[in-house]
Nucleic acid binder design. Structure first.
Lengths: 125, 125
DNA sequence: CTAAATGCAAACTATTTGCAACGAT
DNA sequence: ATCGTTGCAAATAGTTTGCATTTAG
């Protein structure tokens, strides 16, 4: 693993948020890590493939990278896309039992409309 | 709902696969439905927002549209992206109980490597 | 007559890629 | 000397948008 790969991985691991490639790039810049955006993409792709990170897609938005590669889900507001991590008890076990497939990982996104956006919607009426 | 919207919806509902906007566009053409690609996108967006269809994103691939708007998940091969629908018993209930959030819908993607791709991988070694 | 829907081409965004230069082994 | 890594610019892919035109009510 190259030095830049390590630094990028560290940046993602140190953050509490899911970040887009662009956000990671900017944060790297701020931390004086000298890397181009193209390389950020390349490095993030490698890291995801190696299982050090997880790449997540939401409709209509740039992909984000998640430092947590263990089982968990996301609660996402359909309007503003704000995302909260969710832990589930025994979900892997339940899915395994119901599908019979020994899978690598699951991506569970629960869509709802957050309070903020609900209120906005009301106002617009 | 415009005539074209209805026709596009019908095309999606009639198909057993998840299709990309492009695939839907081509299928429409074949069925002599005269519509531009831009309008296919516009129509699919409206239909998704109205809850008649569901738009699904996978990393690295064009979004697909799912005729099934009821609770279900997808088993996706990480390599070839081939997708199979999955039904889960009581999953909504379980998620509701564990999160306490009365959500609109969930998107559950289970990632694995299908047999075909597993064999390919072996060969490459 | 007005508002909504459409086609076309252009714009846009996110992401990937070709290539030459660089760096470590 | 070789091979993976990088930066840059260009390419690509998917999707959206502005605008003039058509269509439906």
């Amino acid at each position: 693993m190259s030095k830049l790969s390590q630094q990028i991985l560290e940046i993602v691991k140190d953050s509490d948020k899911h970040m887009t490639a662009e956000e990671i790039f900017l944060l790297a810049k701020k931390k004086k890590v000298d890397i181009s955006l193209a390389s950020v993409y390349r490095v993030l792709n490698s890291l995801s493939e190696e299982g050090c990170l997880r790449r997540i897609s939401f409709s209509n938005k740039a992909d984000v990278y998640d430092k947590s590669v263990s089982d968990h889900g996301h609660l996402v507001c359909s309007k503003c896309k704000e995302t909260v991590d969710l832990e589930f008890k025994d979900l892997r076990k339940i899915l395994l039992k119901q599908t019979g497939v020994d899978f690598d990982y699951y991506e569970l996104t629960i869509n709802y409309v957050c309070e903020k956006c609900k209120r906005l919607k009301e106002k617009r009426k």
